[in-house]
Design a protein around this nucleic acid. Structure first.
Lengths: 198, 198
DNA sequence: CAATGTGAATTCTTTCACAGCC
DNA sequence: GGCTGTGAAAGAATTCACATTG
């Protein structure tokens, strides 16, 4: 149970560290980078702590984003909690499929990809998400960059090159799966695991 | 262009490092953990290199997985390149919605969640993916653990507790978005970025 | 007394630089 | 000559431990 839910106004670094599974000293040092707001003998005032973390993460600002690709992944992201809270707001989904354009997903309109410049300009979009097939990713990234989008999150399995100072982060949904299978393989290389190949 | 595509049989650590954007010495040391297979004066034989990396990542084994939740995210994952290649095979999607059960997504059948034990047993599934709403995640993780699934990838925004030695990895789709917005905020705190709140 | 914030010690990672090999 | 693999140096991150404070 989290501190705030217990009606307690303060948390100690030890409590937080145990909950997060990290060392208490490390946690204190990390928090100290955000300023000095702990009380010796008592701990951290929860409301103050939350406010400082939000401040540091630039939560509370308005971050309009666009999601290119209204397929399963694009729609899933548009409905995802993390994409619709914490300051992020999905200004539009974009697709080239006439059957998709004009529909509404989770309150967000699906616009044609050609309307990207208009949407970006109107909503001051600085962040773009690419959830298209790999074949379309390069074109879409180029369009986003030309519209003035300054950071791009790419879910397509393609390494994309951008002209200039646009920030691109690649997301590999299967990477974590590989990590897990790796651990299983180490733990029981010949045990009762997955079936034989073939 | 990648080495193998140029008809070249070997790559040097410098080439690989530049392509990956890392230091050459680091790359050499990392590869040395997989064994010794470079040729001084020449570089790494590409086919040998690929074989060793695949070996180390346990690619080539058969890793049947199940995906719980046949919503947008579950379907997107079932169609995702990384989930259907590299040794992974989606044995089944699972859902409780009667409208979904019985349908087929990208060649994968959607079964009822109650059939989980049968599927896991029949296909020797050791890896589970949770793509359900947060409210269902805890129940699903418990079911997976009880069936003998030994590692779970959780896309639901809930910290789940598992009984025993089951490995759980949490995936936060919005985390990367926060990283990007953080960088934008640092780079131009008051510049022509996102619009004003409100 | 309990818990923070931080010097100092430790541990891990990255990088340099070069002996040895092709 | 060019390149690997690795000992040794440099740099970062983590952890200990304690003076300090409410």
């Amino acid at each position: 149970m989290v501190a705030a839910d217990r009606g307690v106004a303060t948390v100690s670094s030890t409590e937080l560290a145990e909950a997060a599974g990290v060392n208490a000293a490390t946690l204190r040092r990390d928090l100290s980078h955000l300023g000095t707001f702990g009380t010796p003998g008592t701990g951290y005032e929860v409301s103050r702590l939350l406010a400082c973390v939000d401040e540091a993460l630039a939560v509370g600002r308005d971050w309009p984003i666009v999601i290119a690709g209204a397929g399963n992944l694009g729609r899933a992201l548009a409905c995802s909690r993390g994409f619709t809270t914490g300051g992020f707001r999905v200004a539009a989904l974009l697709d080239v499929d006439p059957a998709q354009v004009g529909s509404v997903v989770n309150g967000t309109p699906v616009a044609h990809l050609d309307d990207l410049p208009a949407v970006v300009s109107r909503e001051s979009v600085a962040l773009g998400v690419v959830a298209t097939p790999a074949s379309a990713a390069n074109d879409v990234v180029g369009r986003l960059a030309r519209c003035g989008v300054r950071a791009i999150l790419n879910f397509a399995p393609t390494v994309v090159a951008v002209p200039g100072d646009v920030l691109v982060h690649q997301v590999d949904l299967a990477a974590e799966l590989q990590v897990l299978s790796f651990h299983l393989a180490r733990h029981a290389p010949d045990g009762p695991g997955p079936g034989d190949p073939g």
